[in-house]
Nucleic acid binder design. Sequence first.
DNA 1: CTGAAAGCGCTTACAG
DNA 2: CTGAAAGCGCTTACAG
Lengths: 334, 334
Amino acid sequence: MDDKNLTIGDIAAELGVSKTTVSRAISGKGRIGEQTRERVLEYIEEHHYSPNVVAKGLAQNKTFNLGMVLPGDYNIVELPFFQNCMLGISRTASSHGYDVLISMVTADDITQLERAVTNRKIDGVILTRTLTDDAPMKYLKENGVPFVAIGSADDESVVQIDNDHQTACRELTGKLLECGIKRIALIGGDERYIVTRSRLSGFEDAFTARKRWNGEKQIFLNVDGSSEVEHIVDGLLADRTECIVCMDDFLCGCVLNALQQRRIEIPEQMQVVSFYDSTTLAYRMPSITSIRYDVEELGRMACELLLKILDDEEVKRRTLLGYEVRMRNSTRSA
Amino acid sequence: MDDKNLTIGDIAAELGVSKTTVSRAISGKGRIGEQTRERVLEYIEEHHYSPNVVAKGLAQNKTFNLGMVLPGDYNIVELPFFQNCMLGISRTASSHGYDVLISMVTADDITQLERAVTNRKIDGVILTRTLTDDAPMKYLKENGVPFVAIGSADDESVVQIDNDHQTACRELTGKLLECGIKRIALIGGDERYIVTRSRLSGFEDAFTARKRWNGEKQIFLNVDGSSEVEHIVDGLLADRTECIVCMDDFLCGCVLNALQQRRIEIPEQMQVVSFYDSTTLAYRMPSITSIRYDVEELGRMACELLLKILDDEEVKRRTLLGYEVRMRNSTRSA
DNA sequence: CTGAAAGCGCTTACAG
DNA sequence: CTGAAAGCGCTTACAG
């Protein structure tokens, strides 16, 4: 285990070659005799040498660290989305020789991100959600830090990757309408999240695509917390609404609780659908019709995009990933 | 924004002093004239200089990065516990000039951790759970990497911090027994997690403390997934069990679903309690009696312990944090 | 109180 | 194909 602090210099001395040569054998850059390279590589193998990445970074002006920006708000941070995302990012980064450094930010405090940047701890950044008027994004642009955003953004200059929330929501809503639903409601969270807006658009697209649909739709945004949901649910029950579309699994959980408490049968008296299909709702009875995204894949691809950018490769400005509509027992089958 | 790449050398040249002097003004180490220091500091302030932490690290053989080890298993990673932990760690690290680098490991794959260590990317590590026969722990010990474990471990040489799960579970179980419960069941997850064992001990302590209790208790460990829970619940219903103690909120969610599906009234026909009090169960009706831990605080203190160790300060081998028993409507009141 | 110099462990023109 | 030397941006004995 003493090998731990072997340096390129030690190896050079031991083998009677120069540090330059050792460095070349390792990196594969520059011409070097086949013989010499093998000798060096063998020695390295035997003695478990592994290069000091920090020193390498200093010389190359890199850190081999990627920043991952996470929302540090309570509640939100708990959404499984971010963890699954992290899994994908972490694995990909790791397999490319990078590590992942986290920065938790809130709407009005991005100091952790600023520290990571000004301290030159990271080569690039992955944003894990997008907002209208996105402070981290603004900061990164101003400071010329390479980044990719998971989520969508109006700004065409930012490299973004997202599931196609709008189409997903349109398709799901469409299916519901096809089943003859006349009264439908949409409940969503913070309107500053782009994803909230995308889903809203998809929801509305479904109606404009069906000109003959003459029912009633209701929309509730910026819904936050259980008591507000209860109030809304009471209103919807009074209105004889047939279906509630929930924009995330947390809100859906609240809706389900409210319905259960009021002894409303699902789907007979009220249908319910949600997004994400996370474990938050797994095993709920009845099973919940939901959109499913491959969030780990999303993280993986975001990471690969960033790595390409760091390698000065060209990348698509916008990548749209798919989704899957899973019809289950919380809705009447088509 | 050009200030970005200011170096200590630039400042020295500009001010007509040596790099040594600039360094001393910044670090506060070594004697330096009051006048000179102020001049340097002023210049730095004006030009938004911020030192290259990587270079500093190379010179001092530090990275100012802390490793955080997270379980990379699906499902488990989704437990809000780890996110809240991360919040505490991240904030504390940040306020001490450190960043947090994540390594996701599974029971049989700790390569991400190994990479971070052999690449010398981190100064120390925080483990976020403990297992019997803990691979990351073993690796860190063998390689002399400073670390603290969130969770308990038999090994007296490891610095560990944990909520007092055993006492918590004993107290909660005790309260239930005081209410006259005669048939009680415990459902828990993976037995290799120390926390599962601690809670089991606490559960049993409650009975030994009440010698005259003559009821029936059942214990199910290594329970994994919803169908197994359903099967257990059916058995318990047949047995006329009065109360189910769930070791985590995920299992509790499964239990609640199974009961709801079977039209069992809580707490009239079955009482239910859980641990963590996470948002997974928030807003469930009836509200769930539960233990509550301050997980962010746990992360914060773990991080502070590690920072002290890195500073060569003495620390307590074992820190036990409190808990709160929250009696709610899923149990009959005492 | 201050500075010249060596060093942290790498990389990379440049010269041979 | 190989090496001496300078450099990445800091710190830190050592000397004055």
